[in-house]
């Protein structure tokens, strides 16, 4: 089920959450809406769901205009940031809710809920109340609840934001597998670039109510259209006035054709990787370089050494400039 968003604008008082946003999401894909907090990404998701009304613009689902269709008639699954569990219902009743209000036959409800609880590994906890679950379990229950009505479109608002790192890592892999299994179109909002890179087919970067860039994770990482996208998608450092990725910098002991001289200030060992911070002299910011430990050993680098830094391989910004 494909989504087309056209010229969407939304303000809350003086605050412009969305300014003339147009994006496409393709059927069957897992799309991440990525951006800093307060950038408008949740608002976009809520307008697609019908939970919020846009000031201007339209939302098309599979080509038909749903701008004025109530949320309950859009046939979507929505997973809220704080789960929005029905606190007075058991896990089983939470998952069955959508089927019950649709007046599905009892046998059908029983079978479907059982199937979903298996899918999210909560079968044993069916009679529990949400207050008796851990954060991760509550999140899986929220997912099962959203999936119960067999939505062709699944929307998730910062689904793993409130969980600790380890659970988050597990759940994101699991979400990717789930997406492939149930074969829906999925859109999720996140401010975590690693999360977006790891599991999505497409990333839409939103900042200050505008779409900065959309495309595959590789496109965005390697060919960002501006400094914001480049900085948001991965680590950056400045070399000779250009923004580059720290792992794209080549370190040499001898001055090459375009080498910038610098003195090693610090060497921080992070296991496999070693971070090198070098001072290019007065008036310039320190440059951060990511190297492997072996590389450091080969060059026998020590704090205080003079080195020459140049952009190696495919300098991302230059490439874009050439193509653009």
């Amino acid at each position: 089920m494909s989504i087309q968003v056209r010229n969407l604008s939304k303000s809350f008082g003086d605050f412009h959450a969305l300014r003339n946003v147009s994006v496409d999401m393709e059927s069957g894909q897992l799309t991440a809406v990525l951006g800093p907090s307060g950038g408008g990404k949740s608002t976009l998701l809520r307008i697609i769901a019908g939970l919020e009304e846009a000031d201007r613009g339209t939302v098309l689902i599979d080509g038909s205009d749903v701008t004025n269709v109530a949320a309950r008639n859009r046939g979507i699954g929505f997973v809220f940031q704080h789960y929005a569990a029905f606190t007075h219902m058991t896990v089983w009743d939470n998952v069955a809710f959508g089927l019950k209000v649709a007046k599905a036959p009892k046998g059908k409800i029983k079978a479907r809920v059982g199937e979903l609880l298996d899918l999210v590994h909560l079968s044993g906890l069916a009679p529990r109340y949400p207050a008796e679950l851990s954060g991760g379990q509550r999140q899986r229950m929220a997912l099962a609840r959203a999936l119960a009505v067999e939505p062709a479109l699944l929307l998730l608002d910062e689904p793993f934001g409130a969980l600790d790192v380890k659970v988050r890592q597990e759940l994101r892999e699991w979400l990717r597998r789930l997406h492939d299994e149930v074969n829906t179109t999925t859109i999720f909002v996140t401010h975590d670039q690693e999360e977006a890179m790891e599991i999505s087919d497409q990333i839409i970067v939103i900042n200050e109510g505008r779409v900065e860039q959309s495309g595959t994770p590789d496109t965005l990482y390697d060919r960002p259209v501006n400094d914001f996208v480049m900085g948001f998608l991965g680590p950056v450092t400045t070399l000779g006035g250009n923004l580059v990725r720290p792992h794209d910098i080549h370190v040499s002991r001898t001055a090459g054709s375009a080498g910038h001289p610098a003195r090693i200030e610090r060497l921080v060992s992070l296991g496999f990787e070693t971070r090198l911070v070098a001072d290019p002299g007065p008036g310039a910011d320190p440059v951060t370089v990511q190297l492997t430990r072996n590389h450091i050993h080969e060059l026998a680098l020590e704090v205080g050494d003079q080195v020459y830094l140049s952009v190696s391989a495919h300098p991302a910004r230059l490439l874009t400039a050439l193509e653009g």
């Binding site: 309950r72 929505f78 119960a148």
Partner: peptide
């Protein structure tokens, strides 16, 4: 205190 999230969740799940 309970906010509107639960009501919105019900709405999205098809409840009038």
């Amino acid at each position: 205190e309970i906010g509107t999230e639960q009501e919105q969740a019900a709405q999205v799940l098809g409840a009038s």
